[in-house]
Amino acid sequence: MSTYPAYSDDLAHPARPRRRWGRRLLAVGVVLLLILAILLVVADRVAIAYAERAVAEQVSQEIARQNIESSPPEVSISGFPFLTQVAGGRYQSVSIVLRDVTGAVNGNSVRLPELDVDARDVRASLDSLRTGQGEITAATVHGNATIAYDSVVQLIEQPGLRLAEQDGRLGVTAPVEILGQQVTLTGVADLEVADGEVLLRFDDLNAEGLPGNDAARVFIDAYAQQISIAVPLPELPFQLDLQEVEVAPAGLVVTATAQDVPLNQVA
Rank of each mutant, 00 (worst) to 15 (best):
D118M: 14
H13D: 03
G29K: 12
E165M: 05
L32Y: 03
W21Q: 13
L252N: 13
A230W: 00
P14I: 02
V193A: 10
F219N: 15
S78C: 00
D127Q: 13
Q239S: 15
D204F: 00
P249D: 10
G88S: 14
A27M: 11
S95P: 04
P73M: 01
D118Q: 12
Q158P: 03
L115H: 04
A230F: 00
H142C: 03
P249V: 01
D221V: 08
L240S: 02
V176L: 12
L170E: 09
R111C: 01
A47Y: 14
G187T: 08
A230Y: 01
N213F: 05
G134E: 05
A87C: 02
E208S: 11
L236F: 01
P211I: 02
A174D: 10
P14G: 05
I220H: 06
I63P: 14
A119W: 04
V122A: 11
S60D: 04
T173R: 11
A124T: 14
A145V: 08
A43K: 13
D10V: 13
V245T: 13
Y7C: 01
E114D: 02
E208P: 10
Y91M: 09
T84A: 13
A207Q: 03
E52I: 04
I136C: 05
Y91L: 11
D203Q: 09
E192A: 12
Q154C: 03
R19A: 08
Y91V: 08
G88W: 00
V30D: 00
A207D: 06
G160L: 10
A222D: 12
I147W: 02
D10N: 11
L36R: 14
L263T: 06
V94S: 08
D9P: 00
L242E: 09
Y7H: 07
I48T: 15
A164Y: 04
R120T: 15
P73H: 00
V152N: 12
E114Y: 02
R18F: 12
G107L: 02
A164M: 06
S70N: 07
N108R: 14
G29F: 08
G209R: 09
R18D: 09
G168C: 04
G107W: 01
G180P: 10
I48M: 07
V42G: 08
V55W: 04
G143F: 05
A138T: 05
E135V: 07
L163Q: 02
A189D: 03
Q61K: 12
M1C: 09
L36E: 13
V86F: 11
G103Y: 05
P159Q: 04
T186S: 15
E157V: 11
G132A: 05
R217F: 07
A54D: 14
Q66C: 00
S95A: 15
F82Q: 04
L200F: 06
N264I: 12
Y91C: 12
G187I: 07
R53E: 07
